[in-house]
Design a protein around this nucleic acid. Structure first.
Lengths: 229, 229
DNA sequence: GTCTATACTGAGATAGAC
DNA sequence: GTCTATCTCAGTATAGAC
């Protein structure tokens, strides 16, 4: 909703609602969107405690008090950003990791989608990583209900695939965390990866090589059932 | 050096160096060790910017100014902790991922060692994760020299193993990051894993199930060469 | 509805007593 | 060498002008 809002749209929306009003400032809708986009960047850089409202205000091009006026406390703003992110979190799996698909096709599509997320919204991935590192206090309810059910659905998919001899039996929870950690590393650990490859920033070729490596690990695993047959 | 120092050793070391001195406080050696141990815990909980010198002083049981007296700035203390951690970082690979071993044995031993590290020193793992999330500014030199050469040595090991038909050819950098991200997840993402499993904290059985899953992905990959033969 | 000025708190750091 | 008291400053948040 806010993730692709260009900075220019903030300026575009500046207009005087009433002729006599001095310095009308940025209207509510554009300001809120700009603040959310800036908050995603700044929280993604420094985490919750490391980020300052000042920096978010500067990034968003709004006066600092407006952030409190629109969102209340810093924590409430942070939770708004987290909610925005988490709606995106689960979408891909419901497209790909479903019994109707072939196992190999499902895993490949899902892993490609997760790698695309790491490339396109690294700040969102990092905010989530910070939050989990901190102990996930702000999203514990979400993790232990919504995400847990989400994993349970994947478990049923894997069971079907296993019965159809498309993959071996495996612990679904730990397989999902293996896929999540490998793909999210290309956002969360990008500084480390780029330092080792010697590139100043991750190239398309780095994402492609990472994708191929992960695909070989996970799809190679699916082959195991054929070895035993 | 400091990682296994029990809190009790702090108290044990309290003694008066000179009879007439009023309130001698904790001697330097014990105080420094206590501060480093406390810093690892607190930085591991909140990251660099999120941690406060106050909290570290409280944890260590020393007055706040002593931290500045012994370590200078907060950042210098943080770098001392990082150095402590990084010496442990590379040790295991030089034991296991060497051409003298069999590929399967080497991968299994290495992955077991990394999982043990995540279980035994989760704070150390999390400090590293925070630092990399922040952009790795404090360890960039280390990553682009020491760690890079370390990965290059692994690349030579994998080449040998490949020539001996023990494993297929693969991008060594991305294989190492796959293993690191999967194993470190059991420290860095433990809050998320425990929320999904429903356990309040990770059990031994969770680490064991994770270990088996990772081993199957990586060792299954080694089997691929046999499929093609 | 928007923004300037400011209050209040806790941070890192230091001077100087003991 | 150690610790109490304090300084300075950035942080969040708010009161009130426009």
């Amino acid at each position: 909703m806010t993730e692709t809002l260009p900075p220019s749209s903030v300026g575009r929306a500046v207009h005087r609602t009433r002729p006599g009003t001095p310095r009308p400032g940025i209207p509510r809708q554009a300001a809120e969107a700009a603040i959310l986009a800036a908050a995603e960047r700044v929280f993604g850089l420094h985490g919750f405690r490391g980020a300052s409202v000042n920096e978010i205000a500067r990034e968003a091009g709004v006066p600092k008090p407006n952030i409190h006026y629109y969102f209340g406390t810093k924590e409430e703003l942070y939770c708004s950003v987290l909610e925005n992110i988490m709606t995106f979190w689960l979408r891909d799996a419901d497209d790909w990791l479903v019994p109707e698909r072939r196992a190999r096709e499902g895993f490949e599509g899902y892993i490609r989608a997760k790698m695309a997320f790491s490339r396109e919204r690294p700040d969102a991935s990092r905010i989530f990583a910070y939050e989990v590192l901190q102990g996930a206090g702000n999203i514990h309810h979400y993790l232990s209900t919504t995400l847990r059910e989400h994993v349970a659905r994947r478990a049923r998919t894997f069971e079907v695939w296993h019965r159809e001899r498309q993959m071996p039996a495996i612990d679904p929870v730990h397989l999902m965390f293996a896929i999540w950690s490998m793909t999210q590393a290309y956002a969360d650990m990008s500084a480390q990866i780029s330092a080792v490859t010697g590139h100043a920033v991750l190239h398309d070729s780095d994402f492609e090589a990472g994708l191929q490596t992960i695909l070989r690990l996970v799809l190679g695993f699916c082959n195991d059932i054929e070895d035993r047959a």
